[in-house]
Design a protein around this nucleic acid. Structure first.
Length: 994
DNA sequence: CCGGTGTGGTAG
DNA sequence: ATCGCTACCACACCGG
C-alpha cells in the first residue's frame, strides 16, 4: 500500500468530518483487528525485546507519590478534550448480555446503570498474577461503546459474537435502515436456515430476508439439529441423500412466505418429494430428473471410492472406516453411559471405603477377528489364520486370531509383512455393526448376572467388574471358588449369546493383578487368584513380560533395558525388573510418578492413579476434553483448503460439544508435518510417513462452544506453526478443560458494588487522568509502563462531549479512522477483563505485547513493513502476504472502479478484506454519498454483490473471506446506500433486489 | 514454589 | 490402494 497516498486520502476524507481534532495520523502499518495477520505478533515481539529507554529507567527510580505528582503537573485543560468514546446509551444495555463486544469498560463512572469496569486495583489485589498486570491496558479498549452503524470493523474483528446476537444486531440494523425502525413480521421465527449452493434470489438476499423476518441463518451445516430448513434451488443426488432428513425447500418458500406475510407450509416447496421420513426409498430410487451429471458427483465429496480430504464428506467417510476412531468413539459412549447410569444408581453402587474387592477383568479374545470370522461361514477360527484389515499391502491388521499369531503375525502389522510370515493369511473385512452387537451382549450379561456391584467399561470388548467380598474372611477358599464359578458362568453365557465369541477373564483383588491374570488366562481361559500371599503373588507375576503391566509400553521397556537392566534380555519380565531395581532407581530413571507406580505394580499393588477408577468412577470417567485427530489422507495444496478443513473439524467438534452441553476455554492445534527428508509420498497409501509434530494452544477467557470462534483461533494457530500446506500430513484439534454449561450458571461477574467498595481504600495517591493524557506522547508511554508495573491504575475517563454526536458515521470515524492515534493516545490503563476475554487469544497476545513495550514509533512504517518477514516463524513464506494495496483513485470512472473492486474481492476472497483498505474504501463511499452520487454507490454495491455471488459458485472459495465481504456489504454498503438515497432524494430506487 | 505450555507415552 | 483415533496422565521446561 502506498502510504503517502493513503495519508492523503485520509486527510481528504477527514475534512468531511465536521469536527476534526487532530492532524491526520500516520496510517496504521497493520491493524490489530486483522485476525489473520500473525506477522504483527512477530513484529511486536521483536519490538518488545528492545531495551528500556533512558527515560523509563529514570521513572523507575521515583517512588509512587513522586511519579504521580510528576504526572499531575501536566494537567493542561486545553488538552483535556481528547477523543473520547460516547457513553453507551441505555437501550444498548439490553444487548450487552449476548454481545461480548458491548460488555466492556465503559467510560462512565461506576455509579452508572451501565456495567462498567471495576477499578483494576481491586482486581489486582485479589489476584496478584502477572497476567493480570500485563493485560491491564490495551489499545483495543478504545473500541468499546455501543455497536453503531458504521462499526463494522469491530463487528468483523469480533468473531466471538454469537450467531444469534449477530442476527439480532443485523435485524435491528435492517429495520432501522430499510423499514424506518419498524419491525417486520416474524415469519421465520424459530427457523434456522442454511442456504446450499447457488440460489435465486442469491445468498445475500435470502440471508437478509430471513434475518429481518425473525429467522436465523447458518453459514455452515453442522449438526443435524442445528438447522431447521435448508434452502436450495437444486440438489445433486448425493446432497439429496445427505439432506434427506432435513426440510429442504426452494427459495420461493422464503419469498412467497414474505409476500403472503405468513410462513407457508414448507412441504409445498419441498425439493425432496415424497413422505418425510421415508428416506430409504429415496436412497434406493432418487428421482431420475434430479440426477446430476456424472462429473458433478466427485465434487460433492460423497464418492464412495475416493478419500479426498478436500471434500466436505471426508471426515465422515474416514471415521466410518477407521477402527481407531470407532474404538475411541465406542469408549467415549460407554463412559458416558456409565456416568449416566451411575448417577441414576442403576446396577451400580458406590464402592465402600475399605472393602475387599474381587476384580474381574473381562476381555474378548481377538475380538474383531473372531466376530468377523463368525459372520463368514467359510472360515474356521481354530484352524485358519485370520486377520481383519481393509486392504492387502500397507493396510494395518486390526486384529488376528491365535492361529495367525502362531506364525508371528501381530496386531498393527501391515498385511504385506504378515503375509511374509504367514502366506495363507486370510484377510476379513471389518464388521463394525456386529462388533457393537456383541459388545452389547457382553455388557448385558455382565450387568444382568447380578454378580457384580460395579461394571467399569474399558472398551468395546473389555470391562472390569467389581465384586465386594463383604462377609468372607481373608483368604477364604470359598471366595476363591465363588470367583471361579462366576468366571466360568460369564464365559459360557457370553460364548452362547454371541454364538461363538470367547472371553478370557482374569480375577484378583487388585486391578494390576486382575490384568496380569487376564494376560495369563488368554486365550479363551480364566485365571483366578483371589487373596494370595505376597510370596505367591511374586511367584505368579515373576514370569510375565514387563510389557504386560498397565502403562508400560515400548518406550518404558526400552528405558528399563537401557538404564536399569543394561540389555539383558529381549523381552524383560516383571521379575527381571523387580530383582534389579529399587524405588529410587525407578523414580530417577523413569520419573517420580512413573517410578513409584511401577514399584507398586511390581508387588501387584495398584497405585493411586490406577485405582482412581474404583474410588471415584464418576470423576474418572468424566469427560475433560474432546478432540479430532486426522493423520491419514491429509494432502493439501493451499492454506485455504486447510482453513476449510479446520472449519469442518471445528463444526464437528462444536456439534459434539453442544450435545454434551459443554463449553471450552482452550483449544489446541496439533500439526503433523512431513519430515524434511521423508519422501512426499510414503510407503503407505495416503499415509503420513515420517513426521514431526507441533502444537499450539490458545485460550478463550470466556469458555465457548462456537465453531466460528474456535475455528478462527485454530487457523491462527496453524499460521503460527508455519507448516507449508503441502507438507501437512496430519491435523488435530482438541478442546481442553471442558466445563458443563449447567455447572457454570452465572459466574460471569462479581457484583460491581463489592469491587467498587474494595477499591475505595486504594493505597495509591490519586492520579489525575487529564494530566496523564496531557503528557507528551513518548513520555506518556513510559509513564504508563511504569504505572502499570506498580499496578497504579488510571481512573476511567469521563464521558466526552463527542458522545452527544447524533451521527453514527462520525462516531465511527472518530473511533476508527485514526486508529493509530487512538491506540497511542487513548489507551486506557485498565482493560476490561470481559472485553479481553472475548478477544481471540492471538489478539490478546498482541495487545499484551503492544502494551508491554514502550512505543516510540521510532521505526517508520516502511521499516516495520520490511521487517515483516523476520519473525522467528517465517510466516511470510506460508501465508499469502497482505493483498496488494487497493487504490481508489480514478474514483469517478465507473468502469475502473468496478474492475478494481472485482480484483480486490478476488485477492481477498480467502482471508477477507484488510481493514485498512476497508477504511479507505469507506472514505471513498462517504465522499460519493456527500456528493449525492447515489447511483454510483448503488452500482458498486451491485458489482460487489454479483461478484461475491460469482465467487460463491466455486466450491473452492473460502467461506471466511466471502462471509466477511458479505457482511461488509450487508452492514455497511446497504445502509450507506439507503442513507445516501434518502438524503439526496434523488429518486433512485434503492431496492437493490434486497 | 507455583502454574502454564508443549511434548511424549499409553491404551484400547 | 486404504481409512495411522483420541482421552488422559506425566514430564520437562520456563518465567514470575
Amino acid at each position: 500500500m502506498d502510504y503517502e497516498e493513503l495519508a492523503q486520502l485520509l486527510s481528504d476524507a477527514s475534512s468531511l468530518d465536521a469536527s476534526p481534532q487532530e492532524p491526520p495520523p500516520p496510517p496504521p502499518p497493520d491493524s490489530p483487528l486483522r485476525l489473520y495477520d500473525s506477522s504483527r505478533g512477530a513484529i511486536a515481539r521483536e519490538r518488545s525485546q528492545r531495551p528500556f529507554s533512558q527515560q523509563q529507567r529514570l521513572l523507575s527510580t521515583l517512588d509512587d507519590d513522586s511519579l504521580v505528582g510528576l504526572v499531575n503537573t501536566f494537567d493542561r485543560p486545553t488538552q483535556r478534550a481528547r477523543l473520547r468514546r460516547p457513553a453507551a446509551p441505555a437501550d444498548d444495555a439490553a444487548d450487552a448480555e449476548d454481545d461480548p463486544c458491548i460488555v466492556t469498560s465503559s467510560p462512565e463512572p461506576p455509579s452508572s446503570v451501565v456495567p462498567s469496569t471495576p477499578p483494576a486495583s481491586s482486581r489486582l489485589s485479589e489476584s496478584d498474577s502477572s497476567s493480570d498486570r500485563s493485560r491491564s491496558s490495551s489499545p483495543t479498549a478504545a473500541r468499546v461503546g455501543p455497536l453503531k452503524f458504521g462499526d463494522y470493523a469491530q463487528y468483523f474483528s469480533d468473531k466471538t459474537a454469537h450467531q444469534h446476537s449477530r442476527d439480532e444486531y443485523m435485524r435491528k440494523l435492517y429495520q432501522d435502515a430499510l423499514n424506518g425502525g419498524r419491525e417486520y413480521p416474524p415469519i421465520f421465527k424459530d427457523c434456522t436456515i442454511y442456504i446450499n449452493g447457488r440460489t435465486f434470489p442469491d445468498r445475500l438476499q435470502l440471508h437478509q430476508k430471513i434475518i429481518i423476518h425473525g429467522g436465523s441463518f447458518k453459514h455452515f451445516l453442522s449438526g443435524k439439529k442445528s438447522v431447521t430448513h435448508i434452502v436450495a434451488s437444486n440438489l445433486t443426488a448425493k446432497k439429496r441423500i445427505e439432506f434427506q432428513n432435513y426440510k429442504v425447500v426452494a427459495p420461493a418458500w422464503i419469498t412467497e412466505s414474505i409476500a403472503a406475510s405468513k410462513r407457508l407450509p414448507w412441504q409445498d416447496y419441498a425439493l425432496i418429494t415424497g413422505e418425510y421420513g421415508q428416506q430409504k426409498l429415496q436412497i434406493a430410487r432418487p428421482p431420475a430428473a434430479a440426477l446430476p451429471a456424472p462429473e458433478q458427483q466427485p465434487a460433492d465429496g460423497f464418492d464412495a471410492n475416493s478419500l479426498d480430504c478436500k471434500q466436505p464428506g471426508f471426515l465422515q467417510s474416514f471415521f466410518a472406516k477407521s477402527r481407531l476412531h470407532q474404538l475411541s468413539a465406542w469408549k467415549a459412549d460407554l463412559r458416558a453411559l456409565f456416568c449416566e447410569k451411575y448417577v441414576e444408581g442403576a446396577h451400580l453402587q458406590p464402592p465402600p471405603k475399605g472393602a475387599r474387592l474381587a476384580i474381574f477383568h473381562v476381555d474378548f479374545d481377538c475380538f474383531f477377528a473372531t466376530v468377523s470370522a463368525l459372520s463368514d461361514a467359510r472360515y474356521d477360527l481354530s484352524r485358519d489364520p485370520l486377520a481383519v484389515a481393509h486392504g492387502n499391502n500397507s493396510s494395518e491388521i486390526a486384529s488376528c486370531n491365535y492361529v495367525a499369531r502362531s506364525f508371528g503375525v501381530k496386531n498393527g502389522m501391515w498385511v504385506r509383512s504378515a503375509r511374509r510370515l504367514c502366506p495363507n493369511l486370510i484377510c476379513l473385512p471389518y464388521n463394525f455393526e456386529q462388533y457393537e452387537v456383541n459388545s452389547k451382549l457382553l455388557y448385558q450379561i455382565l450387568a444382568g448376572s447380578g454378580f457384580f456391584q460395579m461394571i467399569l467399561p474399558i472398551s468395546i470388548d473389555e470391562a472390569i467388574c467389581v465384586k465386594y467380598l463383604d462377609g468372607l474372611p481373608d483368604g477364604d477358599a470359598s471366595a476363591h471358588q465363588q470367583c471361579e464359578a462366576i468366571t466360568r458362568q460369564i464365559r459360557r453365557d457370553v460364548f452362547d449369546a454371541t454364538n461363538g465369541c470367547t472371553v478370557s477373564i482374569g480375577c484378583s483383588n487388585s486391578l494390576v493383578l486382575a490384568r496380569l491374570a487376564l494376560k495369563k488366562a488368554k486365550p479363551n481361559g480364566q485365571c483366578v487368584m483371589a487373596s494370595l500371599e505376597q510370596d505367591s503373588i511374586d511367584a505368579f507375576i515373576e514370569e510375565l513380560p514387563l510389557r504386560d503391566l498397565p502403562g508400560v509400553g515400548a518406550t518404558i521397556v526400552d528405558k528399563v533395558q537401557q538404564h536399569i537392566l543394561f540389555e539383558q534380555t529381549a523381552e524383560p519380565t516383571i521379575g527381571d525388573l523387580k530383582r534389579n531395581s529399587s524405588l529410587q532407581l525407578l523414580a530417577s530413571k523413569l520419573g517420580t510418578k512413573t517410578g513409584h507406580k511401577l514399584h507398586l505394580f511390581l508387588s501387584g499393588k495398584d497405585d493411586e492413579e490406577n485405582s482412581r477408577v474404583l474410588r471415584d468412577p464418576l470423576d474418572y470417567f468424566a469427560r475433560k476434553s474432546i478432540s479430532v485427530d486426522i493423520n491419514y489422507a491429509i494432502r493439501f495444496d493451499t492454506i485455504h483448503e486447510i482453513d476449510e478443513f479446520i472449519d469442518r473439524i471445528c463444526e464437528h467438534l462444536t456439534t459434539k460439544l453442544g450435545e454434551l452441553d459443554m463449553v471450552t476455554p482452550q483449544v489446541t492445534l496439533k500439526v503433523t508435518r512431513r519430515c524434511e527428508h521423508a519422501p512426499i509420498e510414503p510407503a503407505k497409501y495416503l499415509g503420513s510417513g515420517e513426521c514431526d509434530t507441533f502444537s499450539r494452544s490458545s485460550r478463550f477467557g470466556v469458555p465457548t462452544c462456537e465453531a466460528g470462534l474456535i475455528s478462527t483461533e485454530v487457523k491462527s494457530s496453524f499460521r503460527m506453526l508455519g507448516c507449508p500446506p503441502k507438507d501437512l500430513r496430519g491435523i488435530a484439534v482438541q478442546l481442553n478443560k471442558l466445563e458443563k454449561v449447567s455447572d457454570r450458571v452465572c459466574q460471569l461477574r462479581l457484583p460491581f458494588r463489592e469491587q467498587d467498595a474494595s477499591s475505595a481504600g486504594s493505597r495509591f495517591p490519586a492520579l489525575n487522568v487529564n494530566a496523564f493524557n496531557s503528557l507528551p506522547g513518548a513520555l506518556k508511554e513510559d509513564v504508563r509502563t511504569e504505572l502499570l508495573k506498580r499496578k497504579i491504575n488510571l481512573p476511567p475517563s469521563p464521558p466526552s462531549k463527542r458522545s452527544a454526536s447524533n451521527s453514527p458515521v462520525k462516531d465511527y470515524w472518530g473511533r476508527h479512522g485514526k486508529r493509530t492515534e487512538t491506540l497511542k493516545q487513548e489507551m486506557p490503563s485498565t482493560l476490561d477483563e470481559d472485553f479481553m476475554n472475548h478477544l481471540p487469544t492471538q489478539i490478546q497476545r498482541e495487545i499484551k505485547w503492544d502494551h508491554a513495550i514502550v512505543k516510540k514509533a521510532s521505526s517508520s512504517v516502511r521499516n516495520r513493513l520490511s521487517r515483516k518477514g523476520t519473525g522467528v516463524l517465517n510466516l511470510s513464506k506460508n501465508r499469502p502476504s497482505k493483498p496488494e494495496a487497493v487504490k481508489f483513485q480514478s474514483l469517478e470512472r465507473p468502469l475502473g472502479i468496478s474492475r478494481l473492486i472485482k480484483s480486490w474481492i478476488d485477492d481477498t476472497i480467502d482471508n477477507g478484506p484488510h481493514i485498512d483498505d476497508l477504511n479507505l474504501f469507506d472514505k471513498y463511499l462517504t465522499k460519493l454519498a456527500a456528493k449525492g452520487k447515489t447511483h454510483h454507490i448503488l452500482k458498486i454495491a451491485r458489482t460487489m454483490s454479483s461478484h461475491l455471488e460469482y465467487h460463491s459458485s466455486f466450491t473452492k472459495s473460502n467461506p471466511q473471506g466471502r462471509q466477511e465481504w458479505e457482511e461488509y456489504l450487508l452492514i455497511r454498503m446497504i445502509p450507506t446506500l439507503t442513507a445516501s438515497a434518502a438524503k439526496s432524494d434523488s429518486g433512485v430506487q434503492v431496492t437493490f433486489d434486497l
